[in-house]
Every structure is written in C-alpha cells, then in structure tokens.
Design a binder for these strands. Structure first.
Lengths: 186, 186, 186, 186
DNA sequence: CAGTAAGCGAGACGGTACGTCGGGTCTTACC
DNA sequence: GGTAAGACCCGACGTACCGTCTCGCTTACTG
C-alpha cells in the first residue's frame, strides 16, 4: 500500500499545484477542465480527490494556511523581541503569501470556512501582540484582536503592492513594518 | 420623453439597489434571477440595462465609487487640517463603504477594471497625504502612493470588522485613525 | 399563447421524429446529443421536453402506439368480415410499424411500461378474434388472448422480414395472413 | 496446465451463469460490477475473459445457441415424421429458450452478430420445412426461409407467454404447434 | 381622443460548466 | 501464473445558470 499512497500524494500535489497556478492566472473563472489538464489528470480524477469545486478551493486554501503556519513556526517568534518578531512576521506573510494571493482576495474566502485559519495564523499574531502589550512594547489601549485584523489589512495591502509590481517584497515589508510599528508602539 | 427617462432611472436605481443587497447577502453565488426578483423586475429587463453579469457588477462598483467620491467631496478635505481630514476620510470610507463590502472583496474587482477609481477615490487621498508631507504633518520618508495603498488596506480591514460585527463603525474608524496617524505622523 | 403552444408542438414533433430516425439507425447506443442535433435542437431543449432519456423513449413508444391505434380505427374492422379485417390489421401493423421497429425490439419495451398499449392495440385484435370465434369464422378451441399474443409474434416476425429486406411489406403481410388465417380458421 | 485450464473453465462458467442470472433480472441496465460480483469475481477478471461488455453478451448468446443446438441434435428430427418433428422442435425451443429470454428480446441481438446462429438454429428448422414441403406434408407455396422466420416469431411469442406466466410451457407449445401446423399443412 | 411606439414580463432556446456514473485500460500487490 | 484491488481516462447523463431571442401586453407619448 506504500506505493499506492505515494501515488495518491503525488497526484494530489500535482492537482493542488496546478490548481493554484491556474487560479492565479485565470481567477475564479477557471474551469475544472482547465485545472485538471494543468495538473495533468482528467476531470474525473479531480472529482475522485475533491467532491466539489469548492472543496478543491478549500483544500488549496488549507494548503496555503499550512505552509504559512509552518513558516511562522520556523520564525521562532516567541524567542525574539516583539519588534523584531513583528518584522519577521511581516516578511513571512509577504513572501509566502504571494503564492496565494488569489485565495486571499478570492471568492473562496467565505466567512467561517476555515476555522483552523484562526488558530494557525491569527493566534500567533494575536499572541505576539499580547506579549508586546504586556511587556510594554506596544500601546496598551488597543485590543489585540482588532489589532490583528488591522495587521491583516496591511498585509493584504502589501501583497497587492508586490503582486501588482508597484513595490518589491522588501520595500513593501519595510513599509508595513515601519508604519505599523510606529503606529502601535507604546 | 421626460417620463420615459424618469422611469428608466427609477428602474435602474431599483436594480442597482437590489443587486447590492443580494450580493451583500449571497455573495458571488447570487443568480441573476435572484437579483432581478430582488429588484422587482424580470430577468429580461436586467439584460436590457446590462448586457452582462459583469457589466452589472461593474455598474454597481461604479455607483459605489461615485457615491464615495461625492461624500469625499462633501467632506471638504482641503479646508481642514490634515489630521482632521484623515479622520473625516476614514469615517466616510467606513460609513459609506459598508454598502459595498461585497464589491471591495468580491471577484468583480479585477485589476484595471475601473480606471476612474484612481482619479475619484485614490487621488484625493494621495493629495491629502502629499499636503501632509509638505506641511510637515506627516513623515516625509513615505511615498504618498504607497501610503495610499496601505491606507486602503486599513480601510478594508475596518470594513471587515464592521460587516462581521466585531466592531462598530465608530470603534473601527477610531482604531484606524489612531494607528494610521500615529504611524505616519512626522 | 396560441403561438407558444404551436411552437412547442412543432419542436416536440421534430424531437420525436428525429429521435425515431436516429434510434432506428443507431439503436440504443444513440447519444442524446445525436438525437438533439437530428431534431435540430440543443441538448438542453431536449431536457426541457423530456426529463430523462427513458422518458423520451417512452414518449416515442407512446406516439407509435397512438399512431397505430389511429390507423386501426381507420380500418373500420368491425364493419368488415373477420377474414378481411384480419388482413387489414396485418397490413396496418406491418406498414405503420416499420417506423417503430427500434421500439418493438428495443430496450425501452420493459414490461408494464405502457398500460395503454393493451387497451389501444391488443384490445381491437382480441375483440376481432372474439367476433371470429362467435360467428364461426375462427376455431373455437383457442383463447382470444393467447391468440393475440401469437398474432403479435407473427407481426414482429413480419417486421423483421421487411426491415431486414428479406421480404417486402406486401409479401410479408400476405404470408402472415395466409399462415395465420389457415391456422386458425374454423 | 491441466489445473489452470480447469480453473479457467470454472471461472468462465461462473461468469456466464452469473451474467445470465443478472441480465434476466435487471435487463440491459445491469452493471458490469453487478455481473462480476454475481459471478463471484472482480471486474478486472471479467475483462480478462471478455474484452467488452458486448463480447460478454455475445458469449452468453453463443452459449445459449450452443445449448439449443445440442438439444435440437438430441431431438433426432430427421428420423421422425415432419409433424412430430415440428412438435418436438417447438418444445425444445420453448423449454430451453426460457433461460435466454433476455437475449432473444435484448438489445444484444443486433443483426449479423452471430452468423453461427443461422447454421446451428435456423438451418435445422429450414431443413425440416424443406423436407415437409418435399414429402407433401407442408404447403408448397411457402418459402422455407420465410417460414422459418415466421416460426421464430411464434416461438418468441410463446416464450413471452411462459416468461410472463400467462401460459405454461405445455400450453404455449401446444398452441404454437397447433396453429403453425394447421396453418402450414398441405 | 385614437393610434402608435417603446418598455416590460414571460419564457423558450443555445451554450457551457458542474457533478455523477458506467465502461475500458492499466498497474501493483497477493496467492 | 492468475486474481483482487483500485486508480485512471473517456464520454454520456442530468442539472443549473448565463446570454439571446421572440412574443404579447401595458403604458405613455403623439397626430
């Protein structure tokens, strides 16, 4: 069964990769046939892996969430000062997120679809902000949750900047870090 | 022909209003049949006003842009100090924008679709930021254009907050104003 | 609404006619797409008239039954001597039935599908046989119902003969009439 | 290899038997999966024996033809008077044929599919009829070939009668024999 | 005031994508 | 070796929506 599982994983990876590529280019109007052929499989096989177009989109989003979550874990945020941690965080999001721009702005992002997104992505950010407030690095008059939402807006803006070419990853990241930190520093 | 034109305008308004309502609730999955009946007209009439679903969406966006633009003009931004002007601007966007949340996040927002949006919405903001930099109110190390993009991200985040009920209009506005102003003040 | 109904009838007729033609040629393997294009309509329209392939086949059968029934009524069987009536009947079946060979042998003829077939097609035959037995034209030792079934077998055989070209309509009819009459005459 | 061949034959028999059973019950809509599991084998094995659904159906028909042919040979038709031979023939067909009703009426009976059917089944009948005509038992004005076709129609009708329960094997056979003989006797 | 033209509702139609299912081909593991 | 398990491709079926069209009707403008 090892071979079987390996094949399954390989095909699944191809599907997710191809789907991401096609969605990034054609947006929501991409046909399942397009996605299937981009992944090198047939439409029927697509349905064997995902019962629904929405399920496929959801899986793509989930994959993105997982990757982002992994990169965040790699960043060892709790071990560095809050300001540096925020800077790292911004870079992680802007760098990794560019592969998933379509998702962040896409129609798949219906509220409540991915409860794990909060635990995996928002919680580290919130937690970091809480630490910053506690240790006096950040302003105490702002709710960590709302701050996280605002932070998300800035990240999306930075992704727009980079994906549209109006700014490079480094420039966009620095901009966000500078404005956000200055705006929220105690 | 006066009556005729009046009828046309009335029907058109009903369509745009109904479409906005239905899109806000059901998102992109709303059927043209849904939109038509919400507007109190038949599907055929819809097509008499807009040749395409995309055209209708586009018109909705355009109406939103016009309304926002009008409110911005009402705010007389050039006549008040930069900080007050920014506060007014945020309130205008958050208040008026809630009717068009679907559009700001929706799939209709394909890049390059609405060139007038830049002139009508972004330019006043950019111009305000330029004035702030010139008169020493805002930091001089930030490009007005990029600042405008960042500002947009914060506005969208605030709209998310209000539309999801996590914060009221006033709270969200105040939050954005506080963080943005602190973050960009000279 | 007169126009509408007329159009509907015209399209429906085209569908049934085209379907009969295609089924006669390609048999059960005919695609709905084939049938649709043969009828000069789209596949979607087919589904607007018949919810299911089986429903279309059923309607074809019903149309055949109705036509046959009408021809039988035209033959005024009760007004002619039994022997002549049987001859007419055979000619009606063999002549008209050739348009519906596919149905008589086809997979659509699942038992119990068309209860009206008995009343419209078998009953006249049975009734004719009853009259023949009563007036002494036909043997009295045979059950009219079973005789009808046997008669049906002969008719199908004659249809096979004509459709395969092994015999003409006239020859096949005469053969059936001769054998059946001789075999059942008192 | 003796063992192997024995296994092959056993599996093949199971397939044909199971297929016959399932086809008799579900008709043409039976799935290959159904047939395979009814035969106690996997779908893949089915394909190892028959490259195509049609091939399987064809093999079933052929098996029926062979069995019928054997029973006809057992009947020693040439050794008995024509009338008795016809009676035996009818009984053979009606008795044995009940196992293959599905085939005789099924969609697998496409013209020209089984050339051996003519030699194995129709020829003995034709030959018998020729003898009858020659020795003055049967009418001389009927073509043996056409007579055979008609005979086939009567046999199918009898099979319908027995399979539907409207008549027993004996009753149906007697009916066919009586009508056919009376109808064709010199 | 009567005739007419423009706009609307109703709804059929073609087209296309989606999700389902069965047929036919292949590989891998088991015995 | 042959079999079971099962993935895969292909193509048909049935459903739903979009965009186009034609018809009848109402209504408001016109001679």
């Amino acid at each position: 069964m090892g071979k079987s599982a390996a094949l399954r994983d390989r095909v699944l990876g191809a599907i997710l990769t191809g789907a991401a590529a096609v969605m990034a280019q054609r947006g929501d109007s991409a046909t399942l046939e397009d996605i299937a052929s981009a992944a090198g499989v047939s439409r029927a096989t697509l349905y064997r892996y995902f019962p629904t177009r929405q399920a496929l989109l959801s899986a793509m989003t989930l994959a993105g969430i997982d990757e982002l979550s992994a990169r965040i874990a790699d960043a060892n945020l709790p071990t560095v000062p809050v300001e540096d941690a925020i800077a790292r965080l911004v870079r992680v999001f802007v760098t990794t997120g560019s592969k998933y721009v379509a998702l962040s702005q896409g129609s798949g992002t219906r509220s409540g679809d991915h409860p794990e997104a909060d635990a995996l992505l928002a919680e580290p950010v919130r937690s970091l902000f809480r630490r910053g407030i506690t240790d006096g690095t950040l302003r105490a008059d702002l709710d960590p949750q709302l701050l996280t939402d605002l932070f998300g807006g800035l990240i999306k803006a930075a992704l727009d900047l980079t994906s549209s070419g109006r700014a490079g990853v480094e420039e966009a990241s620095a901009l966000v870090v500078s404005v956000f930190l200055t705006g929220t520093r105690a």
